[in-house]
Simulated assay, not measured.
Amino acid sequence: MSTFSIKDLETITGIKAHTLRIWEQRYNLIEPKRTSTNIRYYTDDDLRFILNVSILNNSGIKISEIAGMKAEDIREKVVSLSENSTSFSAQVKSLSKAMFALDEAEFNRILADSILRSGLEDTMIHLVFPFLHQIGVLWVTGAIHPAHEHFITNLIRQKLFVAIDAQTGNTREKGKKFLLFLPEGEPHEIGLLFANYMLRKRGHAVVYLGQNLPFEDLRHVFNFYEPEYVVSVLTSGMNPEEVQDFVDRIALSWPKAQILLTGYLVVTHPGLKVPEKVQVIKSVEEMRQAIDGL
Rank of each mutant, 00 (worst) to 15 (best):
V140A: 13
Q134C: 02
P130Y: 07
T171G: 02
H126D: 15
K159E: 11
K177S: 08
I125R: 05
V128K: 06
K174Y: 02
N170E: 10
A147P: 00
V128S: 02
N170M: 12
P146N: 07
Q167V: 09
I135Y: 03
T171Y: 02
H148Y: 06
L160F: 15
Q134T: 11
I144F: 05
Q158G: 05
F129M: 10
F161C: 12
L155S: 05
Q134H: 14
G175L: 08
F131A: 06
F131K: 03
K177R: 14
E149L: 04
N154K: 10
V128W: 03
E121A: 13
Q167N: 14
G136Q: 08
P146H: 00
G142R: 06
L160K: 04
G169D: 14
Q167F: 07
R172D: 00
R172E: 10
L160I: 07
H145Q: 14
H150S: 05
R172M: 11
K159V: 13
I144T: 08
H133R: 15
L160W: 02
N154T: 12
K159A: 00
M124S: 11
P130E: 01
G175M: 05
I152Y: 05
Q158K: 15
D165S: 15
K159T: 13
I135K: 01
A166I: 09
P146E: 10
H126T: 06
F129Q: 13
G169V: 12
P130H: 05
K176R: 14
A147K: 02
T123Q: 02
H133W: 09
D122P: 05
F161A: 12
D165H: 14
T123V: 06
P146G: 09
H145S: 13
E149R: 02
H150A: 08
H150K: 11
Q134R: 12
V137I: 15
I152P: 00
I144G: 00
G142S: 09
E121M: 10
Q158D: 12
F131V: 13
M124W: 08
L127T: 04
I135D: 01
F131H: 13
F161Y: 13
A163M: 02
G169I: 14
F161L: 14
T141R: 08
V140Q: 14
A166C: 08
V162K: 12
M124I: 15
T153F: 00
A147W: 06
F131W: 14
A163D: 06
W139S: 04
L127E: 01
V140K: 13
A147S: 10
H150E: 00
L132A: 09
E173Q: 11
Q167D: 08
K176F: 04
H148N: 10
Q134I: 06
H133A: 12
G175S: 04
H148T: 08
D122R: 12
G142M: 04
G175A: 09
Q134E: 12
H150I: 03
F151Y: 13
L138N: 06
Q167E: 15
G175W: 05
K176C: 07
I135P: 01
T123C: 04
Q167R: 10
L132S: 08
I135Q: 08
V128G: 03
K159R: 15
L160Q: 02
H148E: 02
T168Y: 15
